[in-house]
Amino acid sequence: MKKKLDHDEVREVALLARLELCDKEVEEFATQLSSILGYIEKLDELDTDDVEPLAHSLPINNVFREDIPHECLSRDKALGNAPDADDEFFMVPKILDDNSNG
């Protein structure tokens, strides 16, 4: 089995998922994640050299719709579940580092 995930790796994953963990949780998840990874590693025992990677689990392709507009949600409904909104927009904490479009 692979060595246990270290604390920095757990903190990195937490950051990617935007989770704030305390030290105790970091330790706890290091153990849990390592055991999950260990379980998954079992699959490495299979010889997959001659197996095509699977793009999708269903044997279906080409599910399309025609390019015809349908009615949208009303703005009230669209904004209804947002934690914060004004009359027109979703409101979020001020964005400092503009990283739009990747």
Binding site: A78, F89, M91, V92, K94, I95, D98, N101
Partner: peptide, 18 residues
Amino acid sequence: EDAGKNSHTAGNYSQVDL
């Protein structure tokens, strides 16, 4: 697919149009 648009005009908030 494209993303929405942020605008940064409203004080301590940013506005998002999707």
